[in-house]
Design a protein around this nucleic acid. Structure first.
Lengths: 180, 180
DNA sequence: TTTACTGTACCAACCAGTCGGTTTTTTCGG
DNA sequence: CCGAAAAAACCGACTGGTTGGTACAGTAAA
């Protein structure tokens, strides 16, 4: 794959994400994505032979991006858990719309497409638990943070923006204390 | 609405839930639901003038059922939180498939259909927080429990069945201790 | 020459919702 | 209680629009 092709692939994924965010998970059609990406439908199919392949790539892209940000954050925090919570706090809101609908599109289309997400989560969970000697409180913090992400995902958060921010900071704070 | 009509409506909702559970959120079509309910498409449309109306009814039905079960459980527990966690523990797995895909169908179709879920959640959260004087730990337990539900919803739980059961009991236990 | 597309036309499947007609149930005067 | 009119419940073929994917001839860059 040439450099230009890589760029095109990237554009298509971005376009797919923005279509999902703007129009909703149910509106992620090949035509819509192709148009948003500034590619022809033939061009899209050339890189992603099926819709499933496209959505799978979207999910993978989101996981990679999340991983990248978390790694950066890890250097600023004492523990993986603290870094994870902090990353989610600052990251989730930014791409909430995108991620949300992309994940939903995947889930509605074919639940199996979320398996990478599950794998990813298992790894993170193991790491966090190992670092804190299976502490139940660490587990609780991990889960609570996930709940916040899911709230954004489905747009059903019961919190106000400010409550949400405070809550995220509370989680991070508790994670840091846990480490000490 | 006659008694028979009520039965028909109920059958249709049940059919819609089972279609969602069996075939996936993306396969909840009017034809499929009608067939599963043993009704004609015309009959379905007679009771639910649009697909949106049908999905909305599904969501409402799930909320009502959850409410009902929780109320029963509340009489066996000391606090709303403990009852809520206990209900989720025993209830979620039973109908996980149903609920999951129904909710996803709603979300993918039109995010606004989940607003009742959000409202419902706000009420529950307020009640729990009020009962425990805004205790952060109560909030954490509430959120952690929600995360478990979401895991089932998307079939991305990182836990084994046994881990899951133990975890649920841990949450319930902590909720009871919080009360004392 | 291979890779990476464009553009357009096309197709079969699917799907929400319509519509005219039929059956069942309810209502109500006698 | 009876029977007919009225209303409610229900049927299923059909329509118009959408969508995932194909086909293919041609072009431009690497």
């Amino acid at each position: 794959m040439s450099k230009k092709a890589q760029i095109t692939v990237s554009q298509i994924i971005q376009a797919a994400l923005s279509v999902a965010a703007d129009k909703g998970a149910g509106k992620v059609t090949l035509d819509a994505v192709a148009k948003a990406a500034g590619v022809s439908k033939g061009g899209l199919i050339y890189h992603f032979p099926s819709k499933e392949a496209l959505i799978s790539a979207m999910v993978q892209h989101l996981l990679d991006e999340a991983d990248c940000r978390r790694e950066q954050q890890t250097q600023l925090e004492q523990s993986t858990l603290a870094a994870l919570l902090q990353t989610r706090a600052s990251f989730t809101r930014q791409i909430a719309g995108n991620t949300a609908m992309a994940i939903l599109a995947a889930a509605a289309e074919q639940p199996a497409l979320l398996k990478p997400v599950q794998q990813h989560n298992i790894v993170m969970l193991q790491q966090v638990l190992a670092e804190h000697q299976q502490s139940p409180q660490a587990l609780l913090l991990f889960l609570a943070s996930e709940a916040l992400v899911f709230h954004d995902l489905l747009h059903i958060s019961p919190f106000t923006e400010q409550e949400r921010i405070d809550l995220e900071q509370l989680l991070v704070q508790q994670a840091r204390e846990l480490q000490a």
